[in-house]
Amino acid sequence: MPANRFNGFTDYGIGIGLRIPHYDHILSRQPTVDWFEIISENFLVDGGRPLEVLDRILAQYRVVQHGVALYFGSAEAPNRDHLKRLKALTRRTKTPWLSDHLCWGSVDGTYSHDLLPMPYTVAAAKRTAEKIRQVSDYLELPIAVENVSSYTEFHVSEMTEWEFLTEVVERADCGILLDVNNIYVSSRNHSFNPYDYLDGVPHHRVAQMHVAGHTKFEKYILDTHDHPVIDPVWKLYAHATRLCGVTATLLEWDDKIPSFDEVHHEALKAHEFIAQAREAKIPAPRATVRARAR
């Protein structure tokens, strides 16, 4: 959706992640970029260069916060210090929405710093949705949850990943950050059809999309964000755009980061696929019915 209540009724276009190797280029050349996504946790500090750079970026660009440590899916309660710092940062950045992952990663106050996969059960969806609501209420912002790449599946799962995603966002009444590359990676690792996934999520809740590169190993694919986006992922992106409408899109490139121009050029390829989707006539997204009964 170009603008909806899950992305603060904004229409942001094509952005890239704000990364340290590009700071000097961005600050000195001030290139035209629709928007930057920041990793919230990199700026939850009290001062110094991170916040100085951020303030200079904010003076010129639109910024959206993307988190990696809220761990909506962890059974334990949200970390209050984390939330307090996050709220202060949202005041600074004026982010129209805030995203984090549909995963868990902390246990009894110990952090994995990883995005661990959820068991797809109704009980897990209820707990996750409850936490998303708590965080959204506290931050007074729309939340979008991102589907993660995963490498394992649980015996206890009762539904597909896209059914679980639907269950969570409907219960939380929140948005989706649809990571098309993650759908591709997980579809290869777990042998499902990525188009079934795209067809099965509530399209009207999609607040933002991610595209990225990955690394293929002999028996699985890892979500490494260190390559250009491959064609099958761009095709999925075009299909997602047909289903959801032209949506704020961000290219993630987090390792072996090339020049700013190369990253930005890769991100702007999205326009080609948006054009393809437009030619195919984008229908208005329908409100998808909850996949499973409460």
């Binding site: 962890s74 059974a75 334990e76 868990w104 246990v107 009894d108 110990t110 994995s112 990883d114 661990l116 068991p119 059960t121 109704v122 009980a123 897990a124 209820k126 707990r127 649980f154 015996h155 206890v156």
Partner: peptide
């Protein structure tokens, strides 16, 4: 690890079990 996850307590049990494997 629990045979099913039908409550937050069982979700916590499963996550503790997986964390023990992941962090070993």
């Amino acid at each position: 690890a629990p045979a099913r996850v039908d409550s937050t307590a069982r979700l916590a049990q499963l996550q503790r079990a997986m964390w023990r494997v992941v962090s070993r």
